[in-house]
């Protein structure tokens, strides 16, 4: 009698542990410190060749290193593809000159655009934002606004992820007209401020 009970127990144990959960390789969570860069904003742009090398060269050409590295600011970084589309717009026949050969007023216009991507002495962070608009003024003096948009989670309305949206006023005179872009990587902390990377699909350098 004893032997049979032991037999049942043994079979049961083999049976249950037969379905361990080695099927799920848990890669763990990304570590928080990944968003802390320990370099200045411009050095970070230099380090990310694939995404920002055109932007970094334009900042140096327009002499805005100090502006970008000013402590306590927020920098909205457009990616290379956005700048590529900008030049395709200016020179439709793909014959745009090398960056170094830009004329003075072209450089001046680009500098103006870059200044509109800097929010001086204000670190705009995700925690401070909500779906309602909050307004700032850019280094270039134009009005800008930030807000959050939420997605759905498994068809549960508005319970999904939230993304930052950065809008710039492009309206002439007192008529306000905002063009907006979604932030694809938010909250990178450089030694001197916050960096938000902008979507490159539909956003063109200078919001046009």
């Amino acid at each position: 009698m004893k032997r049979s009970i032991i037999a049942i127990l043994f079979a049961g144990v083999v049976f249950i542990c037969g379905c361990n959960d080695d099927y799920f390789t848990d890669g763990g969570l990304p570590d928080e410190k990944a968003s802390v860069l320990n370099v200045s904003t411009l050095d970070y742009l230099d380090s990310q060749k694939g995404q920002f090398d055109t932007l970094a060269t334009l900042i140096k050409l327009c002499g805005l290193e100090a502006e970008v590295n000013k402590p306590g600011n927020t920098f909205l970084a457009p990616q290379n593809y956005s700048i590529h589309n900008y030049f395709k717009l200016l020179f439709p026949e793909d014959n745009w000159p090398p960056l170094t050969a830009l004329t003075a007023e072209q450089k001046e216009e680009i500098a103006g655009i870059i200044r509109n991507y800097i929010i001086p002495d204000k670190q705009v962070e995700r925690s401070g934002l909500s779906p309602a608009y909050s307004y700032e003024t850019t280094r270039g003096g134009t009005k800008a606004r930030f807000n959050l948009i939420r997605e759905d989670y498994l068809e549960n309305v508005n319970m999904g992820a939230a993304y930052l949206v950065f809008g710039l006023n492009v309206g002439a005179g007192n008529v306000e007209q905002y063009r907006s872009v979604i932030v694809v990587t938010s909250g990178l902390r450089s030694t001197n401020g916050i960096i938000h990377v902008l979507d490159s699909n539909t956003h063109i350098f200078g919001f046009n």
């Binding site: 995700r126 992820a161 993304y163 694809v184 699909n201």
Partner: peptide
């Protein structure tokens, strides 16, 4: 191809919503 970037859920590493490693089958 040039100009195609990852969806925001992969690039936005600080987004708390996607800070998971969920075993849905479990």
């Amino acid at each position: 191809p040039y100009g195609v970037s990852m969806p925001a859920m992969y690039t936005d590493i600080t987004n708390p919503f996607y800070n998971n490693s969920s075993d849905w089958q479990g």
